[in-house]
Nucleic acid binder design. Sequence first.
RNA 1: UGGGGCGUAGCCAAGUUGGGUAAGGCACAGGACUUUGACUCCUGCAUUCCCUGGUUCGAGUCCAGGCGCCCCAGCCA
Length: 560
Amino acid sequence: MDISNMQPANFIESIIIEDLKSDKHGGRVVTRFPPEPNGYLHIGHAKSICLNFGLAEKFNGTCHLRFDDTDPAKEELEYVEAIKRDVKWLGFDWGDKLYHAADYFEQLYDYAIELIEKGLAYVDDLSAEEIREYRGTLTEPGKNSPYRERSIEENLDLFKRMRAGEFPDGSRVLRAKIDMTSPNMNMRDPVLYRIKRMHHHRTGDDWCIYPMYDFTHPISDALEGITHSICTLEFEDHRPLYDWVLENVSVPCRPQQIEFARLNLSYTITSKRRLLRLVELGYVTGWDDPRLATIAGIRRRGYTPEAVRDLCERVGVAKNNSLVDMAMLEHCVRDDLNKRAPRAMAVLRPLRVVIENYPEDKVEELEAVNNPEDASMGSRKVPLSRVIYIEQEDFMEDPPRRYRRLAPGREVRLRYGYVIKCEDVIKDENGQVVELRCTYDPDTLGGSTPDGRKVRGIVHWVSARHAVKAEVRLYDRLFTIENPADAEDYVSYVNPNSLEVLKDCMLEPSLAQAAPGSFYQFERQGYFCVDTVDSKPDSLVFNRIVALRDTWAKIQQRQG
RNA sequence: UGGGGCGUAGCCAAGUUGGGUAAGGCACAGGACUUUGACUCCUGCAUUCCCUGGUUCGAGUCCAGGCGCCCCAGCCA
């Protein structure tokens, strides 16, 4: 790593490069991802994960995974396992750098004692409501608590008895003694410890007092030797307190807090409370619903970790509140899957086609390449027989201008196969087209036509006899408005068409063995993956990850 | 006249330290290629950087004054 030539990709990297040059931290770069295990991770967390682990990678440093578990009321073991799984899935490895703030409780307690001894913290007997009243408002200063001037001895005694469990929940707190008139609310004697008799997922019933975030976080960072403590914008106001704690307590080093803007994605929601409500009201099936921007949902939908990381890199790191266009994520998956997804043919809305001049019992194995972007992925055989299915939308009785697909009397090429011509249209009693009678030109295999006539339309198909039936779930954006997070009544903007279930899809036979989680490009349609929850070997379920770009759809839309 | 932060294209975002004549990506629009209307490839897309003044030969960058948006009054993180 040659620091002198490194180009910073964003302001945080600039800071790190400067620190490296000035040898501020002895050349070390240590970051951390500090989730509270009180819910599932979402796309916003993904950005933080990519940033913190990415920085460590880039600068030859390390990144810790630390659970910020200081509030037993909200945190559960179930979430810590889910979070670990999500971080791993994104492709990051914390090695042996797994930490829990709860493991620092004893040391934190000692640092609290140190503050008390220095006259910088005191036990307050005010009730929660009184504390709020004494705190003042945004425009008026607060007032000192009547308990603020207790002696060090009394504070020590009281705090020890708080720990010993002598006082009821909520009856007292330990507060930092800073400045009740500070224009920064966080500096108005913030609470450091509260009494809460609650079972902690890690420390059990060892404690009945628990430290607050503002006290725990800077010390945890210092204890772990974190050099750059990266968090989101809303903690900017907490930085003076972060620094105050580190200045007044004997910690081994001095980490720097740096704030950046969190990632918001259009047409999604990331607030835990709101996510939970969608689940409870049944708008989605759970935290891993493929329409949700949770990591679990994104994974089940079939978005790849590579695509998510690419997105995080592309959106950059800055301090602007931003709402990133969903189209950006979609572009990232297409970009990734185009190179990696095997191609296959699948007819989602089947229309039966009989090739009249194709022998009844004949079956041809046609050669189909698995990925035109990657020759090493090889090819496969796809069976063709007299009766096939094509997509309903690939036939129109009365086609508009520029329509290149099948119509009465018109020709189209079967992908990897022959040119067929529509000779007759069969309808049911309601006038619905139920079957096409076609003929094929045996001399057109291999892409050419003997007479050099141009056949522009190409259509995917599946042999009826060989078809594998499957369910395909078509997902669309969950909300009808760009920024549902902005709307109080976001629930009323849930897209009623966010999921369309197609039951009778016909897949080419090679898909019969598709493993859960594996992804494919269904040619001319999009990228799909085998659902990891509902798909069974004998009843396959595919999720549409994202549709292919569709220029024709745009042209049609423009023409009304 | 509470404090903190942020304003560069429809959406992200470089550029601000050391003033030198607006990167890149997404989206969008044309065109080429094509056995996926995909991919790929070309081309176009801010005479202007929230506004108004000022300094300067020269300002997105410096100065002054406005305006707009976000965050903070949990014993949550």
